[in-house]
């Protein structure tokens, strides 16, 4: 077993274990912490694939911004206690069965499928450095890039409007 495969296995184990723990932990704060670890290991996967820009962006956006948002919301609602009641047993059993069946079916499909391109020959040209990515983003994808900025602006205004306290006289 070579070094990269070993690294990949360790990272995958961390990703899957923390993803499971996110769901099974009772305390929502602990769930958020496990989710941070899960996203950090996904950043590790990106860096392993040599996608430096996306690795850093994933780290900043997910483990930075989104997790702070989650933690702030949890503390705003004062939910850091473990009094959540479970779903009914039938529903939980159905969820477990559906998880197993979905995993089985999708894995069976992908194990039996053959890739179109057989080997991984590299053409030796740079395709995923920040320089190349920025060139593609600001030439071919200029319009979607601007639309994304409008989307973020609209989301920001919507959040401010939604979370504003309503006047009691209404």
């Amino acid at each position: 077993m070579n070094t990269f495969l070993l690294l990949f296995s360790v990272l995958s184990a961390i990703t899957l274990a923390t993803a499971f723990l996110t769901i099974f932990t009772k305390n929502p704060i602990h769930s958020a912490i496990y989710l941070v670890i899960c996203f950090s290991s996904i950043t590790g996967h990106y860096l392993l694939l040599n996608a430096q820009f996306l690795g850093i962006v994933n780290f900043i956006v997910y483990t930075g911004a989104i997790m702070v948002l989650f933690l702030f919301t949890l503390m705003l609602m004062n939910l850091n206690k473990e009094d959540e009641v479970h779903k009914p047993r039938v529903t939980r059993l159905a969820a477990v069965v559906l998880f197993c069946v979905m995993c089985l079916v999708l894995l069976a499909i992908f194990i039996n499928s053959k890739p179109i391109v057989g080997d991984y020959d590299s053409i030796g040209e740079d395709y995923q450095s920040t320089k190349v990515l920025g060139r593609v983003l600001l030439n071919e994808y200029m319009l979607p890039f601007e639309y994304v900025s409008i989307l973020l602006l609209v989301a920001m205004i919507g959040v401010v409007l939604l979370s504003k306290k309503e006047k009691s006289g209404k």
């Binding site: 993803a19 769901i23 779903k87 999708l106």
Partner: peptide
């Protein structure tokens, strides 16, 4: 699949 499972499992 873990994500789908979480949506179905938690309240």
């Amino acid at each position: 699949c873990i994500g789908v499972f979480g949506v179905l499992y938690r309240r």
